[in-house]
Simulated assay, not measured.
Amino acid sequence: MSANSVDVVLVKAGRTKLRYPAEVIRDDGTRMTVRAPWAAVGARDFGFVRFEPGDVFTEHYWRDRWYAVKEVRSGNGALKGWYCDIARPAVATAGELVCEDLDLDLWLSADGATVLRLDEDEFAESGLADRDPEAAENARRALDELELLARDGGFSALLG
């Protein structure tokens, strides 16, 4: 693995959900930005957006924030929007970037008109509030923060 690449490891409920190679675009010690093609097998249609082979994700992970923001573009470069995972702060080690998904998500469409809070039912069913109330509170606060930024046009400043 080269100095400008890393394996992104997405963990959910203590298990590796997905692992894929990504190119490191920027790392300032707090935020690491990577770029990778759609890593799942086949397409995934969420109803509000479709991720498919050829899509390119520019992913922003923070070591001090409870979320990751993924800019999604089609293979021809057209912006689809931003998919945000509520997650524990990312952990980067030699050649690996680990992000633990906490079930909550947010979607912001390319035109900024659609902001969707996602998977709140999964989050409630996960039992995180009972197992780790502090993490659950941080997750809820992070979702509220991202929703406010999305509705107020603050993603440019966040990702700039």
Rank of each mutant, 00 (worst) to 15 (best):
P21Q: 12
C99Y: 00
E100V: 09
C99A: 14
R65M: 07
L116F: 04
A36Q: 13
E125K: 11
T33G: 00
E147V: 13
T30W: 09
P133W: 11
R19T: 15
K12A: 11
L159M: 05
W62K: 06
K12Y: 03
F51D: 06
R73G: 02
V6Q: 01
V9E: 14
R117M: 04
L18N: 13
G29W: 10
P133V: 08
V6P: 01
V98F: 12
G54R: 11
D152F: 07
F46L: 14
A142G: 11
D132A: 14
A43C: 10
A87C: 13
T33I: 14
L143N: 06
F123Y: 13
R63C: 06
T114C: 10
A39I: 08
G75A: 15
S5N: 11
E96I: 07
T33E: 08
G153I: 06
G54F: 10
R63I: 05
A78R: 14
L79A: 12
P89S: 06
R131Y: 06
V9S: 09
A136K: 09
D105R: 01
M32P: 00
L79T: 06
D119W: 02
G153S: 07
G81E: 03
E100F: 06
A129S: 14
D45I: 09
L146M: 14
A142D: 12
W107S: 04
D130Y: 08
E59N: 11
R141A: 14
L149P: 02
R63F: 01
K80F: 10
V91N: 02
R151G: 06
A68P: 00
A92I: 08
S126R: 07
E137G: 07
G77K: 11
V6W: 02
S109M: 06
A39L: 07
D121K: 08
G160T: 01
D85V: 07
C84H: 00
A78L: 10
L102H: 14
D119Y: 03
D130C: 05
A94L: 09
N4M: 14
G81R: 02
R31D: 02
M32A: 10
V98L: 13
S74W: 01
G54I: 12
S156Y: 00
F57S: 12
R65H: 09
D7R: 14
L146N: 05
A124S: 07
L158Y: 02
G153C: 09
L108K: 03
E122K: 10
L146V: 04
A43E: 15
E134A: 15
A78T: 11
A68Y: 01
D85N: 15
L106C: 08
Y67I: 01
S5A: 13
D64C: 07
T58C: 07
F57R: 08
E59V: 03
I25C: 04
A94R: 08
W62F: 13
I25T: 02
D101V: 08
D64H: 13
Y61L: 09
Y61K: 03
A87M: 03
Y67A: 12
G54M: 13
A90S: 13
G112I: 00
T93K: 03
C84K: 00
T16W: 02
D7G: 04
R65N: 05
T30R: 15
L158N: 01
S74F: 01
K80D: 09
E52H: 08
L149R: 13
P133G: 10
L106D: 05
R73E: 05
G77E: 10
S126K: 06
A36W: 03
R140C: 09
D121V: 12
V41P: 04
D144I: 02
